[in-house]
Design a protein around this nucleic acid. Sequence first.
RNA 1: CGGGGCGUAGCGUAGCCCGGUAGCGCGCCUGCUUCGGGAGCAGGAGGUCGCCGGUUCAAAUCCGGCCGCCCCGACCA
Length: 499
Amino acid sequence: MCHSRTTTHHMADDKKLTTRAKDFSAWYNELVLKAEMADYSPVKGCMVIRPNGYGIWERMQRALDDMFKATGHQNAYFPLFIPESYLHKEKEHVEGFAHEFAVVTHGGGKKLEEPLVVRPTSETIIYSMFAKWVQSYRDLPILMNQWANVVRWEMRTRLFLRTTEFLWQEGHTAHATHDEAEAEARQMLGVYRDFMEGYIAMPVITGQKTDSEKFAGALRTYSCEAMMQDNKALQAGTSHNLGQNFARAFELKFQSEQGTEEFAWNTSWGVSTRMVGGLVMTHGDDNGLRCPPLLAPIEMVIVPIYKTDEERSQVLEAANNIAKSLGAWDRREYARLRIHIDSREGIKPGAKYYEWELRGIPLRLELGPRDLASNQGVLVRRDTKEKRPVSLDTLGEDVADVLSAMQRDMLAAAVDRRDANSHRKPMSYDAFRQLMDGEGGFVYAGWCGMASCEAEIKADTKATIRCLPDEEFRSAEVPTTCLKCGMASTVEALWAKAY
RNA sequence: CGGGGCGUAGCGUAGCCCGGUAGCGCGCCUGCUUCGGGAGCAGGAGGUCGCCGGUUCAAAUCCGGCCGCCCCGACCA
């Protein structure tokens, strides 16, 4: 209703999200809660993932799982509880995680002989089992993945981005050689990148972590770094070459072709429900979520419009026919549309529009008597708000075209936004500090390789080296001096504030 | 764990300073009219005012203690 703005002002404020420009953090929380993606739980730091959020996670799982299978991996499941002693077998690993342990000390009313740690990650228990299963080089490689929950006792939590318990997948592999493990770690980083760009429409910079940021116990860590709309970086996935560190700790040995006894080489890699938060902060707008079509639990919602009962039954019949033909169960996955008809009574169409926009459903088909009279509907894109009439005869093709265009456009828009907030020209340290103090962004700059420079920059600005970018992401003009100390640069680094 | 803020109906809040019938908006239920961008009217349901104790004739309000949550920082996917 466009009348009496002043009298409806309070009501409107109740329903609208805080804008991103006003308070990005408040916007994010309100969006996640109001779109019913998640809610706070009775347990501090733990969240409830509601159907609107879980549906996105399910689609993420499905796509990723197919990609893992296509690259030769199999799913398995290992216990939630890990004997405390296992976690202590790899020194760096326990040092990195010990302060986040949740520990079970009692079971069945009795004190346990050995405390059990609720897994923060499963390297230790998985490689202890691999050790049992591997004797010969012929038993390698092992390419395994598990979908699981993990617990890390974080100080401060945020819905989806950091919670005490979270859902993820963790891939674990064992190989006969360093190079094979390295290739695996790089391959899975590539899978993550393909998924993030192809499905989440979230562009990422891939690269290697510095020693101070690498996984506890790893030889090398690679990561995918995405830029959120507040110009902060989100580490969206990591892949580790674990070297022989865990193999030594758990005596994961094999006899080589030459008859010698060797330690295996491991990799592990994971992505989590954090990606759902990344999706929100990459694509959400002031009206709510914008969900990339490939991950949307519902791709198109049909909103019927009518006045009389007779019109209502006509419009609903037409809607049902559309849903039946385009969403038919016997269609192939890629051709079957996920359609919902919002047939709720007593809610006006306008109110439904706002609700589905908040939830990020990519397409809306408005269907009313005037449309039916001309065998058409009005198709509205969530990303651009573009509205146009479409013939019901060619609706299936039209919708498929628009959905794939949206998927492409959303990625392109995210790439543009990231590039517009990336800085590759030589920058003084003062200018860098000012930038990080203000609007932020990704800064590509030289680094001398000293941990002290890295630490001082973090202390000064809260910015960290997100990664040492892979070749394709490096600047055309190679930086020559360290951002901090001005000494000769040994490598190009990507600096940003991060979640 | 340090700093800040907040706990009153499902949600958001007023009332608290200055003690005296717990109010408003949204949402919810019923009915009628509506329905192409957050509907209108009428009626209605819903409250241990976070918890424990103290002061008082009387406490949401004053005092003491505790608990919880959110935000900012240090730690982290």
